[in-house]
Simulated assay, not measured.
Amino acid sequence: MIDDAPLTPHEEDEAMAAELALGLLDGAEAQEAVARLSQDPEFAQSVRDWQERLAAMTDDLTPVMAPARARQAIRERLGHVRAPLTRDPNERNSWWRSPWGALVGSLTVAATVAVLWLPGQQQQQPVTGPAYQVELVAQEIALRVAAQVEGREMQFLMQSGGAAEGRDLEIWWIEPDGSAPISMGVLPRDGNMRMTLPQGMEPSDQIRIALSDEPAGGSPTGQATGPVVAIAELTRL
């Protein structure tokens, strides 16, 4: 019996490109492949070729919209919307929502402010946790995106550049433990976006944020499939 010949380096690259396009890689292998997208043009082209081959296989399929419940759950997890019916519209307002309650509340706030500004009193500031920032730059496409985290609120601001026609820039949260990058959604065309970080995504100076060039609407596999155009670590303000 003759053993199969080992793969050549080119064949190994093709296999990795195909697995990345199919979303089969995870952990350290996924990180290595994603990093190569921005460093190895031939590998990035191979991934795009596989994406086109796989996309051609779906030409005769009828697109089906994801269930509304699934779309809503994803948007809630990303902090884009609140859960529907979180408050009963028929529920009677509590006394403190009435005009009398508003008056009492105003008097209470005024009294609190007066106490805080009395001589010898130290004004207390709310604790929101450390703040971080990151700047994502891709000189090849004149792209510059600034982002900032305060507490659990994160906002993105496009300063220059943008996605090519028919493409989108997808944002990725990369943990230092080698786990698969987590999609944070597609950067809007105007480049401005604010979101609340879901539980489990804790900002630190070891977290990296990346932007990948994806088909319109974002990665079809749940992992970065296009080239990573920019990547940088969060830095503490």
Rank of each mutant, 00 (worst) to 15 (best):
A114N: 07
L237M: 12
F156N: 09
R97Y: 10
E175Y: 07
R75V: 00
S38P: 00
G217M: 02
V186S: 07
D190H: 15
D40T: 01
Q123S: 01
S46R: 09
R69Y: 00
L187S: 06
G200W: 07
A230M: 07
G23R: 03
R236L: 09
A21L: 06
W172G: 01
L118F: 05
D26M: 04
V104C: 06
G129D: 06
F43Q: 03
D49N: 12
T8W: 09
G200D: 06
P181C: 02
N93W: 07
S183M: 00
L78H: 14
A224Q: 05
S179Y: 01
P89E: 11
M195D: 06
R75K: 04
P227K: 05
D177F: 10
Q148G: 04
R48A: 10
S183D: 01
F43R: 03
T225K: 01
P188K: 14
M57N: 05
P9G: 10
G200C: 07
A180K: 00
A138K: 05
L211G: 11
L103K: 14
R53P: 00
Q31P: 00
G200K: 08
Q124S: 09
G151I: 09
T8H: 11
E12Y: 02
E233Y: 12
P198Y: 08
S94K: 11
A17R: 06
A33N: 07
I209T: 14
D60F: 14
T128S: 13
P220H: 08
W173N: 02
L197S: 10
V137S: 12
A44K: 05
F43A: 04
A18N: 03
S212Q: 00
A164D: 11
L24V: 01
E29A: 15
G105F: 04
A44N: 05
G191Q: 07
A17I: 03
